[in-house]
């Protein structure tokens, strides 16, 4: 899965500008701030690309806890990190959008969702919408970038992969299937520089109306497997949740597709 050698004209045009959006992670057991697992995988993916120039971007508050976590990314071998400083409770999407439209990276990599805060996983979508860029989720790898087109490998359940091509600039998110992040070294982490970038702070009005409470562990329904063979048992154990119904539409007009989606949303009572 190594990226193939880049075409000569791509080399001539110079390095591929990659921005990785990194967030403050939260350790699942102790809640300590750390580099977020998926974002770190995103950084690792960027570092595996041939001839890339990588910028790490974080939008948020800088305090002792978050600085330690951000330095975790610097420890992977970076001299600087772009910090778009935002007050607590700010909506970081406008800030990130302005920072990205200014820096004009060709590829933006980020994790699927944050490990704390809202963690809705909507940030890449909203950002893509605002910038008007295509967005691909759940990547396992970026195979190559040629003539402004990236060949991506998307991770699907049960180890399946789908190869996609997308015209750059684009936003992609990485899946847990991407290679694990390299060790963060203490020396470079503490030497790394935080470069402050200016961006407007837009307060997230909607969050005012929300009540936030700690997540509760919900009881999990036990899966009763009535398997006749070892193979069935293995399949049941290895299976990811899969929707049972649904239909695959191919070679349909956009109108037909839209109609089918509209119908489904009605059925599921998402639209009323």
């Amino acid at each position: 899965m190594q990226p193939e050698a880049q075409a000569p004209d791509a080399q001539a045009r110079g390095a591929l500008e990659v921005a990785v959006l990194v967030s403050i992670g939260r350790h699942p057991l102790t809640g300590r701030a750390r580099r977020a697992d998926q974002d770190a995988r995103g950084v690792e993916l960027a570092m595996s690309l041939d001839k890339s120039r990588i910028t790490l971007v974080h939008a948020g508050v800088l305090d002792e806890e978050s600085e330690g976590a951000l330095r975790g990314y610097l420890g992977m071998g970076f001299q600087a990190l772009t910090l778009v400083e935002q007050p607590p409770g700010a909506d970081v999407i406008p800030a990130l959008a302005s920072a990205l439209s200014e820096a004009k990276p060709q590829l933006v990599i980020t994790g699927e969702r944050a490990e704390q805060g809202e963690g809705s996983g909507l940030l890449p979508y909203l950002l893509a919408e605002r910038l008007g860029w295509p967005m691909v989720s759940g990547l396992a790898n970026v195979e190559k970038v040629e003539n402004g087109v990236a060949t991506l490998l998307q991770a699907l359940p049960r180890g399946q992969r789908r190869r996609l091509q997308v015209r750059l600039p684009a936003i992609v998110t990485v899946d847990g299937a991407a290679s694990a992040a390299r060790q963060s070294a203490y020396g470079p982490a503490r030497r790394g520089e935080m470069r402050l970038a200016e961006a407007p702070a837009v307060f997230d009005e909607a969050s005012n109306d929300w009540t936030v409470q700690a997540a509760r562990k919900r009881p999990k329904r036990l899966k009763i497997v009535k398997a006749a063979s070892a193979r069935d048992r293995f399949k049941a154990a290895a299976a990811k949740a899969e929707g049972g119904g649904g239909q695959v539409l191919s070679d349909v007009t956009p109108e037909q597709g839209a109609e089918a989606i509209y119908k489904l949303l009605k059925e599921e009572a998402v639209l009323r």
């Binding site: 350790h27 060790q183 070294a185």
Partner: peptide
């Protein structure tokens, strides 16, 4: 370990665990 970040095999994982837990 501190400059290269190159502790082999389970080294990095153990150190991350020590930091986090």
């Amino acid at each position: 370990t501190l400059e290269h970040g190159n502790t082999p095999n389970k080294g990095a994982e153990v150190l991350d665990n020590l930091i986090a837990t």
